Simulated assay, not measured.
Amino acid sequence: MSQIQAATIKRDEGYWTHPDLPEWDEGTTRAECESWAADNGGEFVVIRFEYDAPEKLIDSYFEQGETDISDWLPVCKKACSFLLSIHDTEDGPVALFFAPKDKDTDA
């Protein structure tokens, strides 16, 4: 199995999904998602819009109902991580990153 790699990002109103990310639905369990990440040699890192975006953008999204979040530029601080998706949830947008695990420290 080839492992997932970073892809070119073209956000539409701030949202984007990696073309090789499985199409999970509400019936997909957390364990299934984490198993996929482990099979690809890494783990997920979630960054929540409500805690990471500029306050003005947060207010615009939650108070005025503005759904364009293009100005939110989440960054994952884990080495070699890359974006898998920016998508909306019941609690607001989240950025999902993939962080490869260091093969030298996994034993």
Score class of each variant (00 low, 15 high):
Thr89Trp: 07
His18Pro: 02
Phe62Ser: 00
Lys10Trp: 03
Thr105Met: 10
Ala37Asn: 04
Ala79Asp: 15
Arg30Phe: 15
Val46Lys: 12
Ser35Val: 08
Ser81Tyr: 08
Lys10Gln: 14
Val94Tyr: 04
Pro54Val: 06
Glu34Lys: 11
Ala95Trp: 11
Ser2Pro: 03
Leu73Arg: 13
Ser35Ala: 15
Gln64Ser: 14
Tyr51Leu: 10
Pro93Asn: 02
Ile58Gly: 02
Gln64Ile: 00
Phe97Ala: 03
Phe62Lys: 01
Ile58Leu: 10
Asp25Gly: 13
Trp24Tyr: 11
Phe97Trp: 08
His87Ser: 15
Gln3Arg: 10
Glu23His: 12
Leu73Thr: 14
Thr28His: 05
Ile9Ala: 03
Asn40Ser: 04
Glu43Gly: 15
Ser85Ala: 15
Thr29Met: 11
Lys101Met: 07
Ser70Ile: 05
Ser70Val: 02
His18Ala: 05
Phe82Lys: 10
Tyr15Glu: 09
Asp106Phe: 08
Gly65Ala: 08
Gly27Phe: 12
Glu43Ile: 11
Thr29Ala: 07
Ala95His: 05
Ala7Leu: 03
Asp52Arg: 02
Arg11Thr: 03
Val45Trp: 08
Phe49Cys: 09
Phe62Tyr: 12
Pro54Trp: 02
Ala38Tyr: 10
Pro74His: 10
Phe98Thr: 02
Trp72His: 10
Ala107Glu: 12
Leu73Met: 10
Ala99Phe: 09
Glu50Ile: 09
Ala7Asp: 05
Gly27Ser: 13
Leu57Cys: 08
His87Phe: 12
Ser2Asn: 04
Ala53Gln: 03
Ile47Lys: 05
Arg11Asn: 01
Asp25Ile: 11
Trp72Leu: 12
His18Lys: 06
Leu83Thr: 07
Gly92Asp: 02
Ser35Lys: 15
Ser2Ile: 08
Pro19Asp: 00
Thr17Asp: 04
Thr17Val: 15
Trp24Cys: 04
Gly42Thr: 01
Asp91Val: 13
Leu84Ile: 13
Trp16Ser: 08
Phe62Arg: 01
Ala99Ile: 08
Ala53Ser: 06
Ala107Gly: 12
Ala7Thr: 03
Glu34Pro: 00
Ile9Asp: 04
Gly42Arg: 00
Ile9Thr: 06
Ile69Lys: 01
Gly27Pro: 00
Glu66Met: 11
Val94Pro: 04
Val46Asn: 14
Glu34Trp: 09
Tyr61Lys: 02
Gly42Ile: 02
Gly27Asn: 14
Asn40Pro: 10
